[in-house]
Computed example of a mutant assay.
Amino acid sequence: MSKQSIFARVSTLARANINAMLDKAEDPQKMLDQMVRDYTNSISEAETAVAQTIGNLRMVQDDYQEDIETAQSWGQKALAASQRADSFRSEGDTASADKFDNLAKVALERQMQAESSAKSAQPTIQSQQEIVDKLKTGLEQMKKKRSELVSKRDELVARAKSAQAQATVHDAIKSIDILDPSSEVNRFEEKVRREEARVRGMNELSASSLDSQFEALEDLGEKTEVEARLAALKAGGASSRPAIEDASEEELFESLETEKDQAKS
């Protein structure tokens, strides 16, 4: 994959409208996670491309340095050969002097070739260095953009979860409003009130029954006492008869009425 296609892909991701993509996604978190993975893969590919470009630059720089060193070496050899030629010439050995001069010329030619090669490599090195600098800057921007994307993903996921929680609470409240539990409470309260009223009625009924029983007992005791007194009067016979005979009927009833009034009071 070429460097242009890699950065074109990264640029497309950087310009993507995240909110629009989330609207189409059924699961925002999964969509954002996939975006982060895609961006991470793009960064990995970009790092590979940058590393390869840097490697190529280093190779050119190594060749340039080797040409410089080669040129220096041939220059030293040319100087040494020239000095030997001068030495032989001073001794009158022209043949040897010419021989070393020729060697010096060969060395100088080799030096010029190395210098020419180094000189031709300089524009390439400069161009490659500019590309590497741009790629490094772009890679740093990609990493920064990825960090922003991760932060944005975390923020949107948190907001999505919060919205989901609010929707759940809203649905719960809505269902409570529909069910209207107060009506159920009122129904149970009414049932308890009816039960309490029934118990009070039973208590009152039981109390009324006891009162009637006690009143019956009192009436029975009174009748028993009356019967006992009547029997006692009959048994008294003659002893009480003169007093009764001596009293008139009106006096007797008046006496009984008086006793009844006293008993009531």
Rank of each mutant, 00 (worst) to 15 (best):
K3H: 12
K3P: 05
Q4K: 14
Q4P: 01
Q4I: 03
Q4H: 07
Q4G: 04
I6Q: 07
F7V: 02
A8E: 15
A8V: 01
V10N: 07
T12K: 11
T12M: 02
A14P: 00
A14I: 05
R15Y: 03
A16T: 11
N19C: 01
N19H: 11
A20Q: 07
D23V: 07
K24D: 14
E26F: 10
P28T: 05
M31N: 12
M31F: 14
L32A: 03
L32E: 00
D33P: 02
N41Q: 13
N41D: 12
S44G: 10
V50M: 13
Q52N: 11
T53V: 09
I54H: 12
G55I: 01
N56R: 11
L57D: 08
V60Q: 03
Q61R: 13
Q61P: 03
D62G: 08
Q65I: 04
E66P: 00
D67M: 11
E69P: 02
T70P: 01
S73P: 00
W74D: 10
Q76M: 12
Q76T: 14
K77H: 07
A78L: 02
A80Q: 08
D86V: 06
F88E: 01
F88N: 05
G92M: 11
A95L: 13
A95C: 02
S96I: 04
A97F: 04
K99G: 04
L108S: 10
R110V: 02
Q111A: 09
M112K: 15
Q113H: 09
E115P: 01
A118L: 02
K119D: 07
K119H: 14
P123F: 01
Q128T: 09
Q128I: 00
L135N: 05
T137Y: 08
L139Y: 08
M142N: 06
K143Q: 10
K144F: 06
R146Q: 07
R146N: 11
R146C: 01
S147G: 03
V150F: 00
V150M: 02
K152P: 00
R153G: 01
R153E: 00
A158F: 03
K161R: 15
K161M: 08
S162C: 04
S162G: 06
Q164E: 12
A167I: 04
A167M: 05
T168M: 05
V169H: 06
H170L: 13
H170N: 10
D171P: 00
K174W: 06
K174L: 13
S175F: 08
I178K: 15
L179W: 03
L179H: 13
P181T: 05
S182W: 04
S182F: 08
R187N: 08
R193S: 15
R194M: 09
E195F: 14
V199Q: 09
N203S: 06
S208M: 11
S209L: 13
Q213D: 09
A216E: 05
L217D: 09
E218C: 02
E218M: 04
D219Q: 14
L220W: 10
G221D: 12
V226I: 13
A228F: 08
A231V: 02
K234M: 03
A235M: 14
G236I: 04
S239Q: 09
R241S: 07
P242N: 05
P242I: 05
A243S: 13
A247E: 15
L252I: 11
F253P: 05
E254M: 10
S255T: 11
S255C: 04
L256N: 02
E257L: 10
D261S: 15
Q262A: 12
A263H: 12
S265L: 07
